[in-house]
Design a protein around this nucleic acid. Structure first.
Length: 207
DNA sequence: CAGAAGATCCCCT
DNA sequence: GGGGATCTTCTGC
């Protein structure tokens, strides 16, 4: 297993978003380790991209982390009740990121099931098993990620609260592409094919 | 300081 | 597939 380093994340965002597919995202604290395979991502290409929080070169307290070099977590609150987990990409000063939209559960499924539905994984209905991590808000709940994990450097570890991605050699899948989800405000950027997912994987949010 | 929008989810039909 | 929940974040006055 190879942990992805800085040189992976500081490349162009479309490449990083695509190559994150099949890799394993880990959240590790002193109390627990939980992990899922990345099966769906979206690229946000600020400042040009009208769907990106950094559109127009906007710098607010929330989006400032997007201007860092690649490899940092960017977690924001959405609709007041959920969170979205992104990984900052590109070199410093270029505010782009990859949104992780869906995972396939890999490690500590009981932790995920308890967070999402308040019961053990073996007690879940089949439908609930599929819905553990098949959306950006859902996977944050299942992985125990919220604003406390914002701005974490995923290329270094402190042993207290770490997030990182590793490559376990999983390959042979087919990558599909589509427009991004729920960005109808983004005008001519609505139809950009910047969503990537593993074709046929049952944890993909839709399509 | 008030108003509006939102990279979502869940429940209902 | 449509609407409500729910409140942070940002903008404009």
């Amino acid at each position: 297993m190879r942990i992805l380093d800085r040189s992976f994340y500081t490349r162009d965002t479309l490449t990083v978003s695509k190559e994150l597919l099949g890799k394993v995202l880990v959240h590790q604290t002193k109390d627990y380790t939980v992990a899922g395979r990345i099966v769906e991502t979206e690229a946000y290409l600020g400042p040009e991209d009208k769907a990106a929080h950094s559109y127009g070169g906007k710098v607010t307290p929330r989006v400032k982390i997007m201007y860092n070099q690649g490899g940092f977590s960017y977690i924001f609150t959405i609709y007041g009740m959920y969170h979205c987990f992104n990984i900052v990409t590109e070199k410093q000063g270029k505010p782009q990121a990859a949104l992780i939209r869906a995972l396939e559960p890999v490690q500590n499924l009981d932790f995920m099931a308890l967070r999402r539905f308040g019961k053990l994984h073996s007690e879940l209905a089949g439908r609930q098993q599929k819905e553990l991590t098949n959306g950006p808000g859902k996977l944050c709940i299942a992985m125990g990620m919220n604003k406390e994990q914002n701005k974490i450097d995923m290329c270094t570890r402190n042993g207290i609260d770490d997030i990182y991605v590793y490559d376990d050699g999983y390959h042979g899948f087919e990558v599909a592409t589509s427009p991004r989800i729920n960005i109808d405000y983004a005008e001519e950027y609505i139809d950009k094919p910047w969503r990537f997912f593993i074709k046929g994987n049952k944890y993909v949010s839709k399509g």
